[in-house]
């Protein structure tokens, strides 16, 4: 199941976000060689704001298996700080273009098959959310080695520039068109036969009584 965490339902879904941020902290600690004994830190950056949208893959026990972060391209976003060489025609900037970041599977020891299932569910959830929210295109920067997996989802992916060496790897900027006509193709490619996006029910309006 994909849970949408937006600005309006943050308090109910905070537990999920905390899992994401804790895992980010642990990953950062592992990379830096820190000891995790007793560590209970969380990893947030300035883009984990109140208006950031998250799509999270949740299992039946409420564990977050993976997720991604979404924000509009017209506001501050993490790609702004990246090399301009990634974008042949400049950074995309439009109301219907959103930026994906932190697309990940949270469990480092998960098998490639499990990670693939989580990724495919997130792809479907992203597409459903985009169609509901009039998002026509998403942009991301990822490692070149992940491009074959991204293409496998069956959606329309266009490089936005040549790969650029960054920190010992090759990064590439991608634009993914989210056209309604391609949705069923993507869903079939991801092996999903039904909607996966769960949106929390809107709170019931309180009645005001004139006394």
């Amino acid at each position: 199941m994909i849970v949408l965490v937006g600005a309006t339902d943050r308090s109910d879904q905070y537990g999920y976000l905390r899992q994401v941020w804790q895992q980010r902290y642990q990953e950062r600690a592992r990379e830096a060689g820190w000891s995790l004994d007793g560590a209970s830190g969380i990893g947030r950056d300035r883009f984990d704001g109140a208006d950031t949208v998250y799509l999270l893959s949740i299992d039946t026990h409420g564990n977050v298996l993976g997720g991604l972060r979404l924000m509009p391209s017209v506001g501050p976003h993490p790609l702004e700080a990246m090399s301009a060489a990634l974008f042949a025609d400049g950074m995309p900037n439009a109301e219907n273009v959103w930026i994906i970041s932190r697309f990940c599977c949270l469990e480092p020891s998960a098998s490639a098959h499990c990670r693939d299932l989580v990724a495919r569910e997130l792809v479907c959830g992203l597409y459903e959310y985009a169609l509901q929210s009039d998002i026509g295109r998403v942009v991301c920067v990822t490692q070149l080695s992940r491009l074959p997996v991204i293409l496998k989802a069956g959606w329309h992916v266009r490089p936005l520039g040549l790969p650029v060496p960054i920190k010992g790897s090759l990064a590439v900027a991608l634009g993914i068109d989210l056209d309604p006509s391609h949705f069923e193709i993507v869903r079939a490619a991801c092996g999903s036969a039904r909607n996966v996006l769960h949106v929390a029910a809107a709170p019931e309006p309180t009645l005001e009584m004139a006394i």
Binding site: L144, L147, P148, L151, P159, L162, P163, V164, L170
Partner: peptide, 16 residues
């Protein structure tokens, strides 16, 4: 090197 990066990109789309 830019030509090599172009061939890197093309190769992935070729395979797909």
């Amino acid at each position: 090197p830019a030509a090599e990066h172009a061939i890197h990109l093309m190769s992935i789309y070729l395979h797909e």
